[in-house]
Design a protein around this nucleic acid. Structure first.
Lengths: 246, 246
DNA sequence: CGAGCTCTTGATGTGGCTCAAGAATCGTGG
DNA sequence: CCACGATTCTTGAGCCACATCAAGAGCTCG
């Protein structure tokens, strides 16, 4: 069945950006160790000391599914995707990460998902052992991480409902509303999608063509408008929510 | 599209078993407060004091999606399902719970899923406030719950991969292997499914008819055998794993 | 033994996939 | 600043996996 767009995408990316190791930014474009803005108040104190700021370029593969999960990452800036491949190349994107999201604390042994930068990114990298040790001792940090994991768990369940029972149009509507919601944008009407259609398709269990067609329909029905394929304006949010269902 | 089997199922159950409040078992069929076997060593000590053993009958709705999440539950015995409905009645079953699984600690306000007993069940019910308080103070308990939540999160992600990119046959194969795995059965060849076809369908994003047809195919291909529609024998596990993919 | 389920099987329909070809957009170098 | 190659996006035609609709066959339990 799925002649994998995933593979094309995959190789396209690595052709464009040969995988290089993570580098500490020479001149960090974001707040560094000393002046790091605590994104999650209360946890930075303990974890701050073991966190190492790193930069990743657009297209870079930061973690590979199957590799030992030696680090936990926090997103400071940029957008990333968490993805996984079936042996034959079919791909699923579990989620997109933005500021404040964590990656990697859900595995004991190896990463089950790959982490790839959709845009240039700023991250904090924590050594896994020390990270765990802090969670062990510091109830505050532990509690914070627990809440974060709960949020991720809820998000995963939302997506499950979407993938198991919603139509293509409903999935796209749900996706757009989620994106609007989490970027907490200005008036909630303007949305810049950091990901291409392939990624949206692989996130929602659709094909790139279906995503494209549905977006066109939504535009024709005046629920949204596009100026540039990634620049979405929400014209009729109520109708979009109606369409998205629950 | 989906003329909801969900609704039929729903009303069938409540017709059979009118929703009654949870009762403490008159004569508990399972180890009670005093002699409760710690399912998860290390956490029972603290949480034990606030846990109240309750029994639920087959078909009983224990928590309703949308209601205030006042309690956390631990499964001692039996099988339950976690489900949610779209406004038009399409249903998704996020997971099935068995011994040692928890429900309800992922929500701040209301339950987002309903909890229903597939068989007669024994549960421990924890008041949410006190449960949270213990997690706050006791790093041991917190850490244990964190790990459990991680497992649930990983399970959810597995299902996401399944729902987004696998075919009907692959989904069923994956499901059977998961069920085999978690029941840790005798020789890993015999499987008693506690749930009817409708529930499997609503878990895997399929219809009851498709589930039935695929099961028939698997039997014809000698991957499994049935004696009774819920009594599954795994004849060729390798082929089943091959089929399930990753 | 029979009413009410649940499960199976068949016939037909359709939403979204596949295959194919342009159109827009982006990045790069002249 | 523009040309052009590469990539991404859109659109169309046809097809297929699974849904829907419809019956009948087992179970189960009173």
């Amino acid at each position: 069945m799925a002649t994998a767009h995933a593979i094309q995408q995959q190789s396209a990316l690595s052709r464009a950006r040969p995988p290089v190791g993570l580098r500490r930014p020479a001149a960090p474009q974001f707040e560094n160790d000393a002046g790091l803005v605590p994104i999650l108040p209360g946890i930075t104190t303990e974890l701050h000391r073991i966190g190492c700021p790193v930069a990743a370029e657009r297209g870079q593969e930061i973690c590979i599914a199957g590799a030992p999960a030696d680090h936990v990452y926090k997103v400071v800036d940029g957008t990333l995707r968490i993805s996984r491949l079936l042996p034959d190349g079919r791909r699923h994107i579990a989620n997109f990460l933005t500021q404040g999201d964590f990656f990697g604390f859900s595995d004991i042994g190896d990463y089950t998902y790959s982490l790839e930068a959709l845009t240039d990114c700023a991250l904090i990298r924590y050594p896994r052992r020390r990270f765990d040790a802090i969670l062990e001792h510091d109830p505050q940090a532990g509690r914070q991480m627990f809440r974060l994991l709960c949020r991720q768990f809820n998000a995963a369940n939302e997506l499950l409902m979407t993938l198991s029972r919603k139509t293509a149009a409903e999935r796209i509507a749900t996706f757009l509303l989620t994106m609007i919601h989490r970027q907490g944008s200005q008036d909630g009407r303007q949305l810049m999608l950091a990901m291409p259609r392939v990624d949206i398709a692989d996130h929602l269990g659709l094909t790139i063509e279906t995503v494209s067609r549905v977006v066109t329909q939504l535009r024709q029905r005046r629920l949204i408008d596009l100026r540039g394929s990634n620049d979405v304006a929400i014209l009729n949010r109520d109708a979009l929510e109606e369409l998205a269902g629950d």
